[in-house]
Design a protein around this nucleic acid. Structure first.
Lengths: 228, 228
DNA sequence: CCTACCGATCGGTAGG
DNA sequence: CCTACCGATCGGTAGG
């Protein structure tokens, strides 16, 4: 089953009062170091998964990229699946974050959608280390790992459909199948991680702006479909 | 290196005149049977690759689905990579076919694009057995296999960009970055194979029509981007 | 087209 | 955090 959701830090500390600040806390504690290293591991792995795919990336590859040997990784993770699972969680978090920021920004559904597209794509491209993994199918994971991820993906899907329907109700989008609309733009967005290269000619915000434009014009749609 | 492009059928037939029609050709020849079986193999495998991913599908799985044992597959393919390679080729062919039909249909770039979207998505959804494989990254293949595929993908990309630019020149689309536009809509279209289920509420043509609408309205774009 | 098998890769562990 | 290793999976082959 999915692991390390949040295990209690510092178990069994005896009730001997607060510890004195060693070296004025100039150095991260061991626990902090552990967390930092774990994060680096997941980021590095997610980058590799995004580039070469989960199954084409061995733990030896990841270890080498981090300058250690494979067994050392097991201080930070329990299985290889853990890594993909956590990387996916991080990229799902980005979606939630973008949606929350959007909601804080405006009451109008259309404006929320616009902000969401731009922000989400920004996050995606800036943190490609963790988000390239988006294009890795969940089917690479056994169902104990896949199920919670699929549940979160479905949740995100429903929230976006609701936003689309709100925008329709508010008269800012034409009447459309919200399910189809979300499948449409999420496909385009998810695919960015397959072709975006950080040093390229376009920044993440530029892509975000252009995509938001394409999408919203597309869903707004004044153009009559030609009869065929 | 990529294999079985087209090997000569019936080698070494002695010059003894045409063979008589055995049983009035009521049965397929051995060669035809071989071809049919090979096709079935590739289709079945492509379906599985699309569902579970290339690496999560063993040759034993494929063999079982076809009611034979693994070694039997090697009468029809040389390596597992062959199968993915051929499945990818087939799905690339579909793109070319849709583009050619579009060009035969109209002189206007915009109309060609519209026809292309609808037709391509139709082919994709009807033949999901072979095309679900689209979402499998080429990086699952060693470079001898990947290179020709990437070349064809690039070719398709360039052709579509040209179409977009033509439509702009003809005044039917607003001035846009054609590269970005193609990345946008191909992302959305490729992703269809990840969520489409044959028995669903929407037919391939309906999806095609809706997507063509979204895309073309998006690229046409009259809506002013809100300042932020 | 099958039974039987080899060889390499790779995730994970022992033990320090 | 390392050296050394195990065990299972799986692509591919021998031989019939």
């Amino acid at each position: 089953m999915p692991v390390s959701e949040k295990k209690p830090r510092r178990v069994g500390a005896k009730a001997s009062g607060p510890k004195p600040d060693r070296w004025s806390n100039a150095f991260p504690t061991m626990q902090q170091q552990h967390d930092i290293k774990r994060q680096a591991l997941v980021r590095e792995a997610a980058r590799a998964f995004g580039r070469q795919g989960f199954h084409n990336t061995s733990l030896d590859d990841i270890a080498k990229a981090l300058g250690v040997t494979k067994p050392a990784l097991y201080r930070y993770i329990k299985t290889k699946h853990d890594i993909l699972y956590e990387a996916k969680q991080i990229s799902l978090d980005a979606g939630i974050r973008a949606r929350e920021e959007a909601r804080a920004k405006s009451g109008k559904a259309l404006e929320q959608l616009e902000f969401y597209f731009i922000r989400y794509i920004e996050l995606l491209t800036n943190e490609l280390g963790s988000y390239a993994v988006l294009s890795e199918p969940v089917t690479s994971l056994p169902s104990e790992y896949a199920k919670p991820l699929l549940a979160r993906m479905r949740e995100a899907d429903l929230a976006l459909r609701q936003l689309v329907e709100d925008a329709v109700a508010e008269g800012d989008l034409k009447k459309i199948d919200s399910k189809l609309a979300v499948a449409f733009f999420m496909g385009a967005i998810t695919h960015i991680s397959r072709w975006y290269v950080p040093g390229g000619s376009l920044s993440g915000s530029e892509i975000g702006r252009a995509f938001a434009d394409f999408i919203l014009n597309g869903l707004r749609g004044d153009r009559a479909t030609s009869a065929r």
